[in-house]
Every structure is written in C-alpha cells, then in structure tokens.
Design a protein around this nucleic acid. Structure first.
Lengths: 329, 329
DNA sequence: CTGAAAGCGCTTACAG
DNA sequence: CTGAAAGCGCTTACAG
C-alpha cells in the first residue's frame, strides 16, 4: 500500500507539502496541488487514517452501549445516533452488552484506551453502574431520573402516570401491571407512575397485581397467563413496554378473551409493529430517533470541550390511543 | 494521561521492558513484572491502543454494513456477529447504510484507510455494488446466489419454492405475492422460487398477482389493500418477509376477513414477533444468529490470511408452520 | 532477562 | 509557499 512517502517521491515534493495538499489545500500552490493529486491518483494512495488518528489523538469514533440490540426501540434510537454521527464525521461502534457488566467494561475501556472519543449509554443508570468515570465522556440516553451524568430522556414516571390515569378515566379500577425486571430503573419509574395514578384516584395499590417480566415478548405472554388466573381479574393491564404488551395480547386471545372488550392493554415505546398488531396498541411514544440525535449532538459537544447548557434534557412523550383500550362496561 | 514512558520512569525500567511486561509477561523477570505492575497501578496507566494498533498495523475492528438496522432480522444477525467478534477480540463498527451508496462507500473506506480490518455486507449483491474490491476483505451474509465474493446464506429460491409448494398442497391455486423492491436480489430469488413452485404444479404465473413492497410493515398493509380489491382475489399470499406479512395481516383483518379461513398468509425470516402476532405467522426461519457467527468467523479467518474451504456457505432454513395458513375450503 | 534504537505514517511549529 | 525535523505512543529485532 502506498504511503505519504511514496506520494512525496512520485510528486517530487516533500512529505509536508503532500500532507498539506491533502488536509489544507489552500496552503499549497496550485501547481503543487496538481502534482500531488496526480501522484495520488497514480499510486491509488489512501491516507492511513489509523496513523492520522493516532497522530491527532482523536479517533472520530463513539461507542453506543446497548443492552439489547434486538429490541427495536434501541435499534431505532441508534439509527438517530448514526445519522448525527455521520453528519459530524464520526463512526459508531456498537457495544451490545446484553446487560453483562464484563462486556460493558470492555467497551468502556475502548474510550479509556483512546480507541473511541466518548460513549452513549442506553442502559438506565443503577447503583452498581460503571459510569460515570472520569476521563470517559459519556451521555445517558433513554434513561431515568437521577442519572449522575449528562442525560437525554423522557419523564417516565409522568408518562406512566398519564397512561394509568387514562385507564382510570375509562372506568378501570383493577389495573394489572406487567413490569420489567424489578431492579431495572425503567421498571421502577413506570411502576411509580402507576402507583401515583392510583393514589390520585383514591385506588389502593395491590402488590399481587404486579407481575415481573423482562421486557421481551415471551415474558409478556408468561406474565399474562398468571394474571388471567387471578380470581378477581383486572380489567386492564399496563405493560412496561410494547414487546411485553404484544406478548400479553397473545396470551389474552389464547384464553378466548377479547381486547379491549374484556380486557384493555397498554404498552410503552411505540414500536413500528405496535400499530400493526391486532388490535393496534395504545401506548406511549418515546421519541427514539430524536433521543439518539440529541444524545449524539451532546456527546460531540462535550468531546469538543464545550459544556452543554443543561445536565438533563427531557424530551416530550406522547400518549398514542389506538384500539387495545376501551371504557369499562 | 500516563504513557508507557511514565511507567518506565516510575518503575526504573526501560520502555521496552515495560512493553514486554504488558504484552509478553513471560519474557520478563518476576521482579521486573512486579515493579511494572506497581507503577501501572500507581499511575493508572492504560496503554493507548490507538498507538498500538497503528504500530501493529492491525485494528481489531470490523465493519458491518446493514441496509436497515431497524429490521429485526438484521439486528438479530448482528448480535451473532457481535458475539463472535467479542470472542476473537474484535470490535464491530456499525454501518447503517439505508441503502445509500454514498454511505456505503464511506464505510468501505474505513477498511481501505486501515481503520478496520474487514467487513460484513448484509445487503445482497447487485450489479452496481461497490464490493468486491481488492484490498478489502469482505464477507456477504444473508445474501443471494452469484455473490462474487465469500458468502454465507440460505437457499432463498428453494425456501420460497417449498413454502409456495406447501400452499399449493393445501389446495391454493391463486396465490398472491407481496414482493420486496423489484431490483433487490432477495425479491428476485423469492419470486423465482414462487414461479418454480407454480410451474411444477402446472399453475400459470399471473404478473398482476405480484405486488411490490419495500420489506417494511406499511408496504405490506398497502400492498394487501391492492390485492384485496382484485376481482378474482387470491386465497393465499406469499410475502417476501415477515414485516410485510404482519402489515398485510392488518389489512386483511381491516376488511373483516379472517386469517386463515378466508385467506392464508406466509412470511419469510421468522422474527421474534412473528409467533406473537395474531394469528401466529407461518414463515421460513433463517438462522440469523448462526449466519452472523459464521460470517464473522470466516472474516476473521481471511483477515488472518487463511483461506476458507468454500466460497459459499449455505445454511439450512426451516419452514415454520403456524396459524396463518390452512387448507382451502 | 534487559535496553538503546529504529520505525510504523502521519502532522505541524519553525525557519526560510 | 515549501522543507527538514521532531514527535505522537507504542513494538521488536538486535546486541549484550
């Protein structure tokens, strides 16, 4: 492979001039530029960007830590990161952690060892989280309250509360919950919103109406089977994400029950598929793409050494009412 | 940030010894090792891997070119790549091309400019494809016949044929198709399988039974509305992927028709959600994770300069029969 | 087992 | 506008 030295030789100009011709053409005479370009063409020269990055102490790469790339919500958010990164000349390294701390640590090390300039964390913050670390520029996206570093998110508690309020307004009094894993911050906040809505309406909280899932389809199906066996069955179920809601719908229909006539169901995220399932799912739209874009922009800003105006960016959510919910008869 | 020079100074040993203590501890005396480790600990030293990579002319990074990260089939395949990459000490750079040639070119340039060692292409080969390129080590995954470089895939034609044969065996004679974009190689091969099945069964091919989609949900819904308006409506629809099949199911139910009693429908891919939609979808399972793993292994092999035994790896598919298909009454 | 030195391919302050 | 030279942080063949 040709190097800058070869181009220098071929063009009869110094390495310095060749370098300038490539990065700062305006610093070089027209004639030199021509000779350099001709040599580059002839030798099929491509600058070794690894060398360049090393020299400039800049990688133009960021890492996105994602707990589960097969969850479409994250995939969509990442597409927002990708777009913004491309615009700013950055590459995106994908860190699929599967909620595994060791994998997470390895990806964080990429930043520590200067293979990436910063990272975006998509797992909500928890007490045993590795971030924040000094020397690692990071943004938390789609997380929760109390994240001790820059974050972009929606107000999960408020969104959950509004959704449950909506169910209560429809006349539902016994509202089941299919929650995410208990320790997960999203689970906690969405459950908190649920409790607040009950409280405001003067309804009592019943622990056994809450069934734990893990945010995946099968766990929604599993959880709903549990719920349907209860003697005093809820008339509505609030699910902590869309995937579980879709799994739950499956389980409800399996039992020969109708949605929403016999039981109402709601999700959280608004995946593409949520408007295509049957019935279409009432859910909370998180602005996934915008969150990704915003997180990337903030990260590039702090990489450039400019501090952002806020430590927390709260984006608006939207309650999307479709066909999986109706008034209690 | 501490460099190897600082560790050298702190430990009173040469840079060379420090370097060896880190990369080849067995080449160094126990005592030196101890001193080096103490110094590393004290200075919180992290080797600059950018420098190391540059020095070794190796990046331990690969690029995955994906046409649409928001298609779960690709996300799942990528998780297979990720796993294998982690095992081999490689990082994965995500190249979300959105079927845009310019973006694709930029990502390929990462390999040309030594920022990555090779790439995995998830877009099926076409005549105006940029790959194969000399100096770019690449594997095509989930592609089609006639890919002019190393590939891992299933036999799309055969799979489609088998699926349509299954519909024919159920008694269906008018079978509609919701195809992907016409120029897409997957569309072509799956359509070819459809035609072959008809031919074998002595059924004639009717062009107007084939409606073009773009592999996304909405296009399935859109296409099926078209199909349902036909005077001599098909009794079964073969969709070129699951997303479109799910969109189509929505459209069919909108018209008050029942699946599979009034119309049977089949997909291609076997996404997670396909067993949770209603009715659950009869489809073709592509071994997404295994494809990703195999593609990554092959890539690492050619990066190491070892040639693989075959130029094409054909993995088995599986016909998954669920509730969206039934015999013609 | 250890160290001095060369070199990977670039960029840039300095001098002219 | 141009070139010689230093240096980014490592690794490794060579000599001892």
């Amino acid at each position: 492979m040709a190097t800058i030295r070869d181009v220098s030789r071929e063009s009869g100009l110094s390495i310095a001039t060749v370098s300038r011709a490539i990065s700062n053409p305006e610093m070089v005479s027209k004639q030199s530029l021509l000779r350099v370009n001709k040599a580059i063409e002839k030798l099929q020269y491509r600058p070794n960007l690894s060398a360049q990055k090393f020299r400039l102490q800049r990688t133009n790469t960021i890492v996105v830590l994602v707990p589960d790339i097969a969850n479409l919500f994250f995939a969509t958010l990442i597409s927002g990161v990708e777009d913004t990164a491309a615009k700013h000349g950055y590459n995106v390294l994908l860190g699929d952690t599967r909620d595994n701390m060791n994998r997470e640590e390895e990806f964080i090390r990429l930043v520590e060892t200067r293979q990436a300039d910063g990272l975006i964390q998509l797992t909500p913050h928890s007490k045993n989280a590795l971030l924040p670390m000094k020397d690692v520029k990071a943004i938390n996206a789609a997380g929760c309250e109390g994240t001790p570093y820059l974050s972009v998110r929606i107000d999960n508690i408020d969104a959950a509360q509004k959704m449950v309020q909506y169910l209560i307004n429809l006349g539902h009094k016994r509202i089941g919950v299919i929650s995410g894993l208990r320790d997960n911050a999203h689970s906690k906040e969405r459950l908190q919103g649920y409790r607040q809505a009950l409280e405001k309406a003067g309804l009592s909280y019943e622990e056994n109406l809450v069934v734990e899932g893990d945010f995946k389809y099968w766990s929604g199906l599993n959880a709903v089977r549990h719920i349907l066996k209860m003697e005093d069955r809820p008339t509505a179920i609030f699910c902590a994400n869309d995937q579980m809601a879709i799994g739950a719908m499956k389980g409800i229909k399996e039992q020969g029950l109708r949605i929403p006539e016999d039981i109402s169901i709601t999700g959280f995220d608004d995946l593409d598929v949520s408007s295509y399932c049957d019935p279409s799912l009432t859910t909370i739209r998180q602005p996934a793409v915008e969150m990704g874009e915003k997180a990337a922009e903030l990260l590039f800003r702090i990489i450039d050494g400019r501090q952002p105006s806020f430590s927390e960016y709260i984006l608006p959510y939207e309650i999307i009412i479709r066909d999986s919910t109706s008034a209690l008869k």
